[in-house]
């Protein structure tokens, strides 16, 4: 395990050395003093977070740590109690076209009467704006995205007839079709088989190679060093954020999860 981990670490170091050089760091997302509360009980407390452009970042933390809430607050889906968020220096509502969002798979009703292609087309709605309808161009983009995630043969399948992994690929295709600069994904690996997980992470790595910023709520700590080059530890408060090789260690894991952790990469 340790040998493998070292190897993986070496690979991921190679991958992100250029992105982390401080001289040309552009901030994709900046979160200042963000506090979010449900019924006056804070679920995120005074979060400061800077996400540099071009990283593939995992947000990790225990259940109820506010990982999904953080994404939703950044995207303006939840109204924060305090604090502010900027995307490339401007508020989110002015930068919508730069951002794609993949909600948790369980947050939608998969019995909804629609097809895989139609769900992917929804990704184009943002650039269309109100009232205007998707046309040939949007359909072509959606078909290309389906192709990329290997779901083209299923384009006319009703979404309830897809397996969990296929549904997640459809969601990913819908984000790809948005052709954004920043991708937020809420647990894209939840309930998917190993093949799909690899397919998804490969696409995410491709996105990063193309200079995109990808932010993923992630649960499987074992795969963090293998999949990601940047990580944020969250548990209501921000514990740490930075390159995986610098901060993914027992100390931060213990601070975040509250129990002694010995799974991480050895220094």
């Amino acid at each position: 395990m340790n040998e493998l981990a070292k190897e993986l670490k070496a690979i991921s170091m190679d991958d992100h050395i250029k992105e982390t050089s401080p001289s040309k760091t552009v901030l994709a997302v900046k979160v200042d003093d963000l506090t979010v509360a449900y019924n006056y009980k804070p679920v995120l407390w005074d979060i400061d977070l800077e996400i540099p452009e071009g990283v593939l970042m995992a947000i990790v933390g225990p259940n109820g740590a506010g990982k999904s809430t953080l994404i939703k607050a950044i995207l303006g889906i939840l109204k924060p109690l305090a604090g502010s968020v900027t995307i490339y220096g401007k508020p989110y509502h002015k930068q919508r076209s730069l951002v794609a969002y993949v909600p948790q798979k369980g947050s939608v009703d998969w019995d909804f009467p629609t097809t895989a292609l139609d769900v992917v087309m929804m990704g184009t709605y943002g650039s269309l704006g109100w009232i205007k309808r998707p046309g040939v161009k949007e359909k072509k983009a959606a078909l290309e995205a389906l192709e990329k995630v290997g779901m083209l043969p299923f384009k006319n399948r009703q979404i309830s007839q897809l397996s969990g992994g296929q549904q997640q690929r459809i969601f990913l295709a819908r984000a790809l079709v948005q052709d954004a600069s920043i991708y937020f994904m809420d647990e894209p690996f939840q309930g998917v088989d190993a093949t799909t997980e690899i397919a998804i992470i490969n696409i995410l790595k491709e996105l990063r190679k193309a200079g995109k910023t990808v932010i993923v709520v992630h649960h499987d700590l074992q795969t963090v060093p293998e999949y990601f080059d940047w990580v944020t530890f969250l548990n209501v408060k921000k514990i740490a954020t930075g390159p995986v090789m610098d901060i993914f260690n027992d100390d931060n894991l213990t601070k975040t999860y509250g129990i002694n952790y010995k799974v991480s990469v050895q220094k």
């Binding site: 509502h93 919508r96 951002v99 009703d109 769900v119 109100w130």
Partner: peptide, 12 residues
């Protein structure tokens, strides 16, 4: 109706 979260993030 299908995905309120996406709808909100798209500005609808």
């Amino acid at each position: 109706t299908f995905d309120p979260g996406l709808s909100a993030s798209l500005g609808f």
